[in-house]
Design a protein around this nucleic acid. Structure first.
Lengths: 219, 219
DNA sequence: TTAGTATGTGTATATAGTACACTATCTCAT
DNA sequence: ATGAGATAGTGTACTATATACACATACTAA
């Protein structure tokens, strides 16, 4: 029978592409049970903010960016996931363009914040390795039928650049011609006038038809 | 900035098939802002139970059934979703076989509990019409690549019966031959010796290869 | 024996996904 | 001016999956 209620927090898996790798932001914990361990950033949800707002606020505090793709992932509520306190955590996934981030900042409660290669995460605090696994699955799935990568790209980009991002996230090589067919079938892109320097044939630049999150099929 | 923390509740969309319709359990509220309105059953999460446990407990209290399909759906956390209190609600979806339920019971806080046709829901309390929409989408989606309907069927059943349930949930007629092809490709069923009375050719009975929730593809 | 009723089954077509290689266009070096 | 180097851009054949569609079969009951 319920007596008292758990606390509510949000945790955010903030993805970016950097140096040809899929990376996430982690913060280093100072508090007792997890001293020195890394975890996804997050914090308690205030009385006067929705879950989405709490996630957006935390993302802004850490990275200084707004208007990126942000989606609720799953809610983790095991009793012992935080050994000293009962906290239910609503996990979110965010996608940010690394160029738009000047500096990562965190509060005094933490002793560090940095980008980590998603493929080589250390053992994380709480149940955050499970969170990471869910987040990657969801990201890969959504890639197939939405335009969510717009958050990872500049306004104008080449097909090769777009394909590279897909390859990094999916963790496998794609065929150029089949990739174009798929992207075309989703009807996400608009051609522009070509640009792109380089000691070779210049590539045409594309832009997204819309830079708002747009679901192509049912979720 | 967070000050205090919202309360945490679970709400459960309990589906069944009855009289050829997809139905859900609703309870009638007594408390002030929603007096007389119907809502999905649920309640606050206790300090010593996980979210899943809270959902399972509530399902058991209302219906007396255990061991059915139960899945977390989404977490609703708008500030004003409950006008008098700040409650974050983790919504769950459950599938139960109506035959296994003797009686619906609820606590003194509510003035009624009953089954409602999912296709004709009244205006519900809180944000529960949105919850209903999400739940139906998820149910339809999961139907396509999992064995979750096992919770809605007896141990032995005919293909016609199985197909009928799919048709009710999806809200459209299916072709018998194509349906069989699809079910076979999922490799969910085992043939048994035929039975089934009736004034016509008797139908072969099938059973599920396994009656645990089993994901066929990635979620 | 027959009428009635639901079962059980196969093929042809359309659509989506995958495998696969060569020509075109530019820059830079000579 | 020419050629080497480098990446861009493009089409077809094959496979797998999804859809449309109709008739013979096996039982019960009169």
């Amino acid at each position: 029978m319920p007596k008292g209620s758990p606390k509510v927090a949000v945790d955010i898996v903030i993805f970016t592409i950097d140096e040809g790798k899929l990376k996430v932001i982690l913060i280093r914990m100072e508090k007792k049970p997890f001293t020195g361990k890394w975890a996804f950033p997050g914090g308690l949800v205030g009385f006067k903010e929705s879950l989405d707002e709490a996630a957006r606020r935390d993302l802004y505090e850490k990275t200084g960016v707004k208007n990126v793709y942000l989606e609720q992932l799953y809610t983790f509520g095991d009793v012992r996931r935080d050994p000293f306190s009962r906290v239910v955590s609503v996990a979110y996934v965010a996608l940010v363009n690394k160029n738009r981030i000047k500096k990562l900042t965190t509060t005094a409660k933490y002793t560090g914040i940095d980008w980590f290669n998603m493929a080589k995460l250390p053992r994380l605090a709480y149940d955050h390795n499970k969170v990471a696994k869910y987040a990657l699955e969801r990201l890969r799935l959504k890639l197939e039928y939405t335009n969510i990568v717009f958050s990872l790209l500049p306004r104008y980009f080449t097909l090769a650049h777009l394909q590279e991002i897909y390859e990094i996230i999916l963790g496998k090589k794609l065929d150029k011609r089949n990739f174009l067919k798929k992207i075309n079938s989703l009807n996400l892109l608009k051609k522009t006038r070509k640009l792109e320097k380089g000691a070779h044939r210049p590539a045409r630049l594309y832009e997204f038809r819309t830079r708002k999150p747009r679901i192509i099929e049912i979720l």
